[in-house]
Every structure is written in C-alpha cells, then in structure tokens.
Amino acid sequence: MRELTYAQAGVEAVAEEMRVDPRIFYMSTDPIMPLVKEFGDKRVRATPIAEAALTGISIGAAGSGYRPIMDWRQVTFSFVAMDQIVNQAAKIHYMFGGQRTFPILYRANVGGGTRLAAQHCQCPYSMFMNLSGLKMFLPSTPYDLKGLLKTAIRDNNPVISFESNRLLTTKGPVPEEDYTIPLGVADIKRKGTDVTIVAIAWLVHEALAAAEELAKSGISVEVIDPRTLVPLDVETIRASVRKTGRLVVADEAGPTAGFSAEVAAVATEDPETFARMKSPVRRVCALNVPIPYSPPLEDHVFPDRKRIMAGIRDVLEGARSVRGG
C-alpha cells in the first residue's frame, strides 16, 4: 500500500471531502497551499489572526448551511477563542433545543517534542473533553487521521481534530480508495494477555515499542488506541482490562483531571472490570509543569517507552506505589 505522512493524510482527507461537497470551506491564518491552489482563495481563506472571531464565524456559517473547517493550527491559538468554543459552539445545538445543526470541524495540533516550549507544546484536550456538546479525536497514524477527519467533516456537530505535532512527518499506509473511520471506536493496535495499555497519539508508538521489548521477556501487552476522545470507546477498554486484569494509561498530557484519569475511572468504576483487576491502575503521563524548552528538560517532562515499561512492570508486580506523574 502507498504511504503518506500524517500531515499529507490530513490534507488529502480535506481535499477529498471538499471535492464532493461545495458547502465545505476552510479558514486558517496560514492556509495550506495545495488546497488554495485547487479550491481557490474563497473556499480556502487566509484570515486575519483573529481566532475568537473566526471560531464564531464558523458557527454562524454552519448554522446558515455551510460546513466550515476552522484550522486553529496550534491548539495554543484556540485559547483566545474559548468563549466561542465553550459558551457557543459546545452549547448552541442543545441550548436552542436542537433547532439547527452546526457541522464544524476545528483542527488543532497538540503535543511536544518540537522544542517550542511552554506555549506551543500543550496537550489540553481534557479541557475540551470536560465540555458537553463537542466531539473530538486524536489519532496516532496517517490512516486513522484521514478516516476520522472524513467522518468528522460529514458529522453534523462541532468536532475537534487534535493532531499530534510529533507525528506530522511520520509515514504510514493509507489506501487510495475512499474509507472512513467511525467516531467512538477504539483500535486494538496490538493483542496481548498480561497487561492492557491505553495510549494516544505519539505514545501509541512508544507503547508498541515497549510491548515489543517486553515480549522478549515473555510479557504480553495489549495496546489500545481509543483514537476518539469523545465519545470514548469505554467498552473496548473495559473488555481488554477484564481480560488482562491490569491497566496502564499513557498520555502526553499531565495526569490531573486528564484523559488518563478518565480512562482509569471508566475502567475501575465498572464492577465487573474492577473485580477482575489484579493491580491498581498505573498512569504514565507528563510531569505537572509547563513544558520547558531545553532538550534535557523537555525530554524529562514527557513520558516515553522507558517510563511505559516501568509502568507495566509496576502493574505486573501489583505495585501499590505511584511513580512519577
């Protein structure tokens, strides 16, 4: 199968959908040139740096029959639009009693590894998960990104596509033919029997590397990539934990009230799953500091395959202590 980078897969998903639906248009402060070339500067708009306005303009255009895509680029830039995200986009369908649909795709890059320091290396998706009314995903492969983006563009609700900074240039197989991936369906990236590791984005690859390494010692690790953050595929996570009895959650964000906390909660609050657990849940997350610039500092703050392996060993030993995070 042909290979595309993660970034290319994203562009291809948008272009394919724009070709079939003239109601889709794209706004970004820094537009993607191949899209401008193909669709013109009216459908792929270069905007002022005015995310608060543009995030709201997307809502009004969606309520008027269009299907806007608003590219925040770095998630950092969405924060100036928080009123429009939190008070308007997330609530407008419900608050007005479902009068209109608001099909909007917001795109945002997240995560570290780019040496861009505190403001441009963030993983704040749990802030958005906490809102009722938005759907969102964070894929780990070009294949998943393309399939989820196409679904999101066709969805009649505001959806946020979080996309991993670390993965933009990584390559993976993407078929030429049309396909979509439904929201809310996890992918089991590796089957295993001893430990379940739930990971997202770049840490899926780190978890797979850890699993490969541990296999040499006879430890069988199951790697689950939820892909979609909201709605979360709770059943796939619980089924895996019921099978293995052990759960490690790996996230590039900090642990506090985060994605990892949510996964731990949905697994352990289910009596059947909890009854089969042989060890406490172990979270492998970023340390609770803003992301520092210098490479030794940044690399220390983010989790990696070594910390994932340590976490797996902890749950295998039934360790009661919590390390790191």
Partner: peptide, 25 residues
Amino acid sequence: MLGANGIVAGGISIVTGAGLAAQMD
C-alpha cells in the same frame, strides 16, 4: 433570529458568519 446570547459580544462573530454565508450564497 440566530439567538439571544448570555455573553456580551458573544453573538457578534456568529452573525458575521451568517453574513459570510450570505455573501457566499
């Protein structure tokens, strides 16, 4: 009527999006 809004200045951008839609239409 695209809605009353509890946030001061909250509606200005939404209706500007409706204006953009009208222009594109």
